[in-house]
Every structure is written in structure tokens, then in C-alpha cells.
Simulated scan of single mutants.
Amino acid sequence: MSTQDRAVLEAVSSSGESTLDRATAKAKETFDQLLHVTLNIAVTGKTGSGKSSFVNALRGLSDDDEGAAPTGVTETTMKAIMYTHPTMPNVNIWDLPGIGSPNFKANKYLKEVNFKFYDFFLILNSERFMQNDIMLAKEIRKQKKDFYFVRSKIDNDISSEQRKRGFKEQKVLDEIRKDCQENLKEMKYSKVFLISSAEFWKFDFEMLKNTLLEELPAHKQSALIQAWPVCSAACLEKKIKLFKGLSWVVSLISAGVAAVPVPGVSVVCDISIVFLFLARCYFAFGLDDRSLKRLSKKVGIPLQEHRARSKLADAIQKKAITAVKLSSAVVTSAVAKDLLSLFPGVGSVVAAGLSFASTQYILREGVNELAATAREITRIAGLGTMQ
């Protein structure tokens, strides 16, 4: 049996299906979900709780970045505003007006919010959760939607308590969590996530992500994994696992092998789809300029030079790919040649087309190289040890 045939059979086996046609159909559905399933996240709560900063943190932005949600000491959100994720256009994060403010009384707020539109709600408060928060949570529950209480601005609490004699950070965190849980007893709900938008990699940011993944429908999970900023080594590993597990999908999609009903027939693959998949990895792993600049600023260590050590990551960066929408037209033959030249043994076949086996090789090696680069940057930034 040829290498080509073995590669096709490998992809079919990875799909969990029994035939090539069924595997290809599943690949198309999975690939469509990876790129196009919409996720609408609602961020709401008391005015002044830091909703806009939290929206920015979820989008991997600082408050002063271009396109960031405006923040301030006064009420800045006067209506529901949608912010698209900068590298995941199918993920929308909604900054909702603060409940209970002079402009949005609780009863009016509950009437105007389109609860069914959002996948889940994050209810923020920088102090104790109040009756309006509980009222909102009850209404969300009535609408059979999920909600999560987020106690924000934890960095401010820690900073304030540090000046006191006998300060212990964990003790402060435990006291804040207990106070919130006591306040929410009537909800019979004990999950409270302590978050700092300014230091998103600390406290419960990772725990919040894991909880969301456990409770989201399966077809929505990949969107959240891709969009969530890299806040720890564990977070990065989830992203790597996702993309490694999808190499069979891209192999079948790029080849269009449903048109090849029997083994032994040559399969020519579309390199543009392969390149776009690797570009997705690049952004999801936090290797783009925006993500690295933000992380460098936070940890005080220059990180972009470490990305440059990866020929593949450097090549993707230099092609100035600023979005990862599915559009194979953006990948020119020159870009394809540049990409193929990075993989020994396949660069010379670009004119004749890429074989299925070569495609699998590029996908495997490409994801591994980007993963290794991201792991090294995460280690240098100290995210492996931050909780």
C-alpha cells in the first residue's frame, strides 16, 4: 500500500467513521464549526464594576488599545454594544448597560434585555453582589440560560490589604469568596470567580474558562478555546490539543477526497486551507504582535524576539495576516511557495500540487513548531507557574 493510501486511511480512522465519504462529511461539518459557529457572551452587572475592562481582557486587549471598549469612572455603557474578537470574528462579546443605574432601573432592564440571544451571562460586581444582581440571575435562570458571578477588581482588594500587618493573599481571597457566597445563599449557587482584568492570568481566570468549557454545548467549545487569551501553560495546552486533534479534518477538507472513492487514486490538496489552519493556530496560541506586545508589557520581558526563532511563526507574521476568516483567495501562490519551502521534501512539489501524505506532514510539523514556540514564550513569561 502506498504512503498516500495509508495517509487517507489514517485520516478516516481519526474521524471515527467507517468510510471515506462519511469521514469527509464529518470533516466538513467540524471545519465549518471551527470557523463559523457564533458565540455571544454577555457581560453585565452593576455600573462601575469594570465590565468594559473585563470585555477588553476577554478580547486580549488593554484598555488603551485601538478598538478597546471605552472605560471610565462614570457610566460609559449606555446601550448594549457588541465587540467582535480581534482574531475570532465569530466570537462576539457584549458590553451591556449596568443594571440598577439611574438610566437603567432593574425592572426596565429586565424587559429590554434579549436573554435568548446570548449563550451565557457573566455578572460582574466589584463589591458585594446586591439584590439587582440576584434578580438578574433569577431572570436568566428562568430563560434557561447559564450565568456566572464574577467578583472583579481583585487586584485593587489585594493592593489595599497589603498595607495591613499580617497580610496573606490567600486569606484575603478566601474571605472575599466566602462573603460573596454568603451573599448569594438564596440563589443556592456557590460558584464565584475572582478576577482581575488588569492581571488576567492570575486568580480565577483559568478556572472560569474551564467551567465555561464544561458547561458549553460541544459545538461551541472550540470557539471559546480559540478566543480565550493565553493565561497559563494549561490554557495553551488545551489550545494545542484542539488543533492537533483537527489535523485529519484539514487533510480531508483541503483534499476534497470525497471525489476519490477508491484507494490508489492521486489526491491533490489545497495548500491555502492548510495555511489558513496554521494561521488560526498562530493567533490562538497568542503568537501575533498584539498578544505578544500585551504580554511583554505585563511581565516586563521582550517576547517577540523568541517568536522570530520559529521560521514558520515568523513567516506567518511577515505575511501580515490580520484576520483568520475562511477565504482561500488570500493565499497567493507566492505565499504557498514560501510556506512549503519551510518543510524539507515538499517545497519542490508546489507546481504539481500537494499530496495528501505531504499535507498531513505539514499539518503535523506546523502545529508542533507553533506549539513549541508558544510553550517557550509561555515559560519565559512565567505563565506556567501563575495560578
Rank of each mutant, 00 (worst) to 15 (best):
A329I: 15
S310V: 09
L342C: 01
A336D: 01
S310R: 04
A336M: 05
G347R: 05
A315Y: 14
V330H: 06
F343E: 00
S310C: 07
K318S: 07
G347T: 02
K318W: 11
A336G: 11
D338L: 09
A313Q: 02
A336Q: 11
A308P: 00
P344A: 08
V346Y: 05
K337F: 05
K325H: 13
V330D: 12
T332I: 03
G345M: 06
V330W: 11
V331E: 02
V335G: 02
A320L: 10
K337V: 08
K319W: 15
Q317W: 15
R307Q: 08
D314Q: 11
S310Y: 08
L326R: 14
A334V: 14
K311I: 02
I321Y: 04
Q317V: 03
A329F: 13
D338P: 05
S333L: 10
T332S: 15
S310W: 07
F343G: 01
K311L: 09
H306Y: 15
L326K: 14
S341F: 02
P344N: 03
K318I: 04
V330F: 09
V330L: 11
T322A: 09
V324P: 07
Q304F: 03
K325G: 13
R309S: 10
Q304S: 11
A308I: 04
L342P: 04
A313G: 09
K325D: 15
V331H: 00
P344Y: 06
K337A: 08
A329S: 15
A308C: 06
A320D: 04
E305Y: 12
G345F: 08
Q304I: 08
L326Y: 12
G347N: 01
T332L: 05
A323M: 10
I316C: 01
K318G: 02
L342F: 02
I321Q: 01
S310I: 06
E305L: 11
S327I: 07
K311D: 05
A336K: 13
V331M: 04
S328G: 08
R307M: 13
F343S: 00
K325A: 10
V324I: 15
L342S: 01
V346L: 01
Q317A: 12
F343T: 01
D314E: 12
S328M: 11
L340F: 05
D314G: 05
E305T: 13
D314T: 09
Q304W: 01
K318D: 04
V335L: 07
I321K: 03
T322K: 14
D338C: 08
A313F: 03
A308L: 07
D338R: 08
R309K: 14
L340V: 02
S333Q: 12
S328V: 15
A320N: 10
Q317I: 07
A320I: 09
D314L: 05
L339E: 00
D338K: 06
V330K: 07
S327H: 10
T322G: 04
G345L: 07
S327N: 15
Q317R: 15
H306N: 06
K337N: 08
A308Q: 05
L312K: 13
A334Q: 14
